[in-house]
């Protein structure tokens, strides 16, 4: 087992106008690289917050998130450095064109071949002819593709996607899902997706259902090696 994200007794809530909204309580979960994981559940149950905690982008109110690499405990920063995130609202930078949005994380890491690699990923998502277009000149589906390419371009160990097909039509949603799962498979990336789509869930190696502050495993795919997940 190389890289694992583990949640131990994690609870989370937030306050709005002095009112506490509880999301989940003492939740335990283990996510490993090289596999795909889908999290389902009704709206407002805390799926996105869970995903952010898993990705090290938010701290839980109580409990612990641990990231281990070859049994060594690493920091949240180390987790973020080896992961990508596909946001529900894409969060592409409006001033940058599609190519430079994808190249952004590589440039930050000081990669001298950032543009070439970004171009490769732009081709992978089928948008090579849109490289010079800015986000407001792209459709929702195209923006989502750029966001996916940006998440995978650094060849991360994990990619987290927050309802990536939520705003898309059925056909485009299928294409996007195909794209993400195939990218994850080719790159042996741990892929965690929050979704409402049963189809997306069925394609994941592991599927979880969240409700009433708890999480339950729905199924385990047959093609997995034994002992690879909990």
């Amino acid at each position: 087992m190389s890289q694992i994200i583990m949640l131990d007794d994690v609870s989370h809530h937030f306050k709005i106008n002095n009112q506490t909204i509880s999301l989940f309580n003492k939740l335990n979960l283990k996510i490993s690289a090289h596999h795909s994981h889908a999290i389902m559940g009704p709206s407002g149950v805390g799926k996105s917050s869970l995903l952010l905690i898993l990705a090290g982008l938010e701290k839980p109110v109580s409990g612990k998130m641990t990231f281990t690499d070859r049994d060594c405990i690493k920091t949240e920063l180390a987790l973020r450095q080896c992961s990508g995130f596909v946001f529900q609202q894409f969060h592409l930078l409006p001033e940058l064109d599609a190519l430079n949005n994808i190249a952004l994380p590589l440039k930050l890491k000081g990669d001298k071949h950032a543009i070439e690699k970004a171009l490769f990923w732009l081709k992978q998502v089928g948008l090579e002819y849109r490289s010079k277009h800015k986000p407001n000149e792209l459709s929702g589906g195209e923006q989502q593709r750029v966001a996916i390419a940006r998440a995978f371009v650094t060849q991360p160990s994990f990619v987290f996607a927050d309802e990536p097909t939520g705003n898309l039509d059925t056909q485009t949603a299928k294409e996007i899902a195909d794209l993400m799962f195939s990218c994850a498979k080719i790159n042996k990336t741990g892929f965690v997706v929050v979704t409402h789509s049963k189809d997306v869930c069925d394609r994941a190696d592991f599927c979880y259902e969240m409700s009433h502050g708890k999480i339950n495993k729905v199924n385990v795919q047959h093609n997995l090696k034994q002992g690879s997940v909990v």
């Binding site: 450095q81 969060h91 994380p105 930050l108 650094t154």
Partner: peptide, 13 residues
């Protein structure tokens, strides 16, 4: 804010 949020999500300190 968005820029900082993205940079942090990319693993920057």
């Amino acid at each position: 804010k968005i820029k900082n949020g993205l940079l942090l999500s990319f693993g920057q300190s």
